[in-house]
Amino acid sequence: MRAVFIGASSLAVMTARFLLNRGHEVIIIERDKDCIEALSEELDCGFLHGDGSKPAILREAAPDETDMLFCLTANDQSNIIASLVGRSLGFGRVVTKIEDPEYEHICIELGLEDTIIPAGTIGRYLADMFDGRDLLELSSMIKGEARVFSFVARDKEAGPVHDLGLPKETGVVCFYRDGKFSLAGEDTVLEPGDEVLLITHSRNLPVLMQRLGQASEGWGTEATPADP
């Protein structure tokens, strides 16, 4: 498989190294020539010098031959623009890194489904470690177009699960009430304050965001409630 990285950040280099060790082809697009020269000594991959948000540079990376485009620069706006340009040029899948969680709902509205916030993911991981919880990230188990979405039920969401009016390919998996875990069934009745976990198709995220709340810090698939 073939991966293209925009920006030679530490995250990009580490991910590229893992992919190379697994036998995949890697191309790194970087503005800094000195950085390219230094990395070429340690990484057996291709390099393109230039601005990865420019269509001309991305075309050189052969979108139709690439399985995934990683936009991992240190600038959120640059990553969002590069992701949109890359998607328009035909890259099969685009990963967008952001640091500011305020951009997350914008990325979802723009259809950038694979948006990551590394600090949020690591922070949650460390908090779970501190609490002694299972360290297996749920996100690593969700594949393809499946996404996880969570919200806290308000008064208008209280009632039978089947009255939520969820979009197709969406189901309630479980909920937490007063910190206690419960599996959800057809007869489940939600109460205000319940934390509810859904599994859905990625195309449903904008609708769920609008109906049930705003995205919280995380890996692009989790939401917290809007103010009543």
Results as ranks from 00 to 15, higher is better:
residue 2 R to M: 08
residue 7 G to N: 03
residue 10 S to A: 15
residue 16 A to M: 08
residue 18 F to Q: 15
residue 20 L to H: 05
residue 23 G to F: 03
residue 36 I to T: 01
residue 37 E to F: 09
residue 39 L to Y: 04
residue 41 E to H: 06
residue 45 C to Y: 04
residue 46 G to L: 11
residue 48 L to R: 02
residue 51 D to R: 03
residue 53 S to D: 11
residue 53 S to C: 02
residue 54 K to C: 11
residue 57 I to H: 05
residue 57 I to S: 03
residue 63 P to D: 03
residue 64 D to L: 08
residue 67 D to M: 04
residue 69 L to P: 00
residue 72 L to N: 09
residue 75 N to C: 03
residue 75 N to M: 03
residue 76 D to K: 11
residue 77 Q to D: 12
residue 80 I to P: 14
residue 85 V to Q: 09
residue 99 E to W: 08
residue 100 D to L: 04
residue 101 P to S: 13
residue 102 E to D: 15
residue 103 Y to G: 09
residue 111 G to H: 01
residue 112 L to G: 05
residue 114 D to E: 13
residue 115 T to M: 04
residue 116 I to F: 07
residue 117 I to W: 07
residue 119 A to T: 12
residue 120 G to N: 06
residue 123 G to W: 00
residue 123 G to L: 00
residue 124 R to S: 14
residue 128 D to W: 02
residue 130 F to S: 14
residue 131 D to C: 14
residue 132 G to A: 07
residue 134 D to R: 01
residue 134 D to P: 13
residue 137 E to V: 05
residue 138 L to K: 00
residue 139 S to C: 08
residue 141 M to D: 14
residue 143 K to Q: 14
residue 143 K to H: 13
residue 148 V to W: 00
residue 151 F to N: 07
residue 151 F to Y: 09
residue 155 D to V: 14
residue 158 A to L: 05
residue 158 A to N: 02
residue 163 D to C: 10
residue 167 P to C: 07
residue 169 E to D: 12
residue 180 K to I: 13
residue 183 L to F: 15
residue 186 E to K: 04
residue 186 E to Y: 10
residue 192 P to K: 10
residue 196 V to L: 03
residue 197 L to G: 13
residue 197 L to V: 15
residue 199 I to K: 00
residue 199 I to L: 10
residue 199 I to A: 11
residue 201 H to N: 11
residue 201 H to T: 08
residue 205 L to W: 00
residue 206 P to I: 02
residue 210 Q to T: 07
residue 216 S to Q: 09
residue 216 S to C: 05
residue 217 E to K: 14
residue 219 W to Q: 14
residue 220 G to P: 00
residue 221 T to W: 00
residue 224 T to R: 11
residue 227 D to C: 11
